[in-house]
Amino acid sequence: MLEIKNLHARIAEDGTEILRGIDLVVKPGEVHAIMGPNGSGKSTLSYILAGKDDYEVTEGDIVYNGQSLLELAPDERAAAGVFLAFQYPIEIPGVATMTFLKTALNAQRKARGEEELSTPEFMKRVKDKAGELQITMDMLKRPLNVGFSGGEKKRAEILQMALLQPSLCVLDETDSGLDIDALKVVSDGVNRLRGPDRSFVVITHYQRLLDHIVPDVVHVLSKGRIVKTGGPELALELEKNGYADFVDAAA
């Protein structure tokens, strides 16, 4: 279970305050959507969950399965089951996607005290998951994210998520840069991973992603605070009326 308590955070370099007291509880098996206008702090929240050191937590805590995430390095959080699907996946030149997948999977297994996967077993898992996401073997031989189209990048993110089997998935604007067909493939990939032991925090601008990945709870973030929480119908309301009402309410 993820529990965010009164979280305040600022940009480490210039001290700009971004998050101003976020409270959020995500239970196992739940899908929470976080919506909000540009600059409301959505992406910052995702980076802070994953442990990027560009930000400084000044107050509050993030407790995951009884442990404070703030004490853990990014790779330790990953091994503990936290996965961030990046809005802009990073290019790693010269490193084949397949190599990256295997290195990441085995690093996590090792951190958890598990055996490394044998190559045949690994290949089998990759092939199964890749097929579902319409990722070809040819694409897996290319360097990770280098020259990938927007859709390929997002599908590669979901493939990593499917392989690493995290218990907390944070999706940062996974729908950005996707056409309708790609959106469907990616959403189906996410939906296949839904289960009683896995929680999702889905960050998005738009309702359309939530047509495919139907959330249990929707939050509206504005100026670093959650200003409204509701069911899936809240997203529809936002789609119709925009964020203006909430932004004003927060001000």
């Binding site: 790779d75 990073i90 790693i92 030149p93 010269g94 490193v95 290195t103 990441a104 996590q108």
Partner: peptide, 26 residues
């Protein structure tokens, strides 16, 4: 950003550097 991306996937500092460098010299 490259370091953070690799770490987010579970690689330690050293593993991330090794991976990125191995890509560079491939």
């Amino acid at each position: 950003d490259q370091m953070f991306y690799c770490q987010q996937r579970g690689l330690s500092d050293e593993e991330a550097v090794a991976l990125i460098v191995n890509g560079f010299v491939k």
